[in-house]
Amino acid sequence: MKRILSLKVNGNSYEVAINPWQTLLDVLRNELGLIGTKKGCDIGTCGVCTVIMDGKAILSCLTLAIECEGHTISTIEGIGTAESLHPVQKSFIENGAVQCGYCTPGIVMTAKALLDENPKPDDDEIKDALSGTFCRCTGHIKIMEAVKKVSQPEDEEKSNV
């Protein structure tokens, strides 16, 4: 039987009727129309569907929507737009960290959660945070660079020298 669920996503409040077994991923995509969060393997192995809940990067395919009531969720649509990009999005674009783009929203959200908590991560901390993500196109090389450049902008590097 369906239940009424109140969700807070990207600062907006939603009320939807869902089945208790529906995942947050399915509710975001199919009930709220937030298709920026992509569905990858749907079994928690690829990180494509990552969103941020209460400041932590989580896999929306392994999270039941019914558990999300009372929590604050943010998705790729909520952090920036093409006109007003989030610094992580801007850095991904400028550093060539986007290729096919399927994994991009999930990796951007993972990187944002890391940088919100730890604005100056070292290489190992970045690798650790991104270790659950998966990109077949870029080889993660330019993704690493992009995340590093958000935390250490070049002008800052120069001023430190």
Partner: peptide
């Protein structure tokens, strides 16, 4: 930079 990268980085590209 890729012309479609802003759309992809903001979750606006469709698959």
């Amino acid at each position: 930079t890729k012309l479609d990268a802003p759309l992809k980085a903001t979750g606006r590209s469709q698959f």
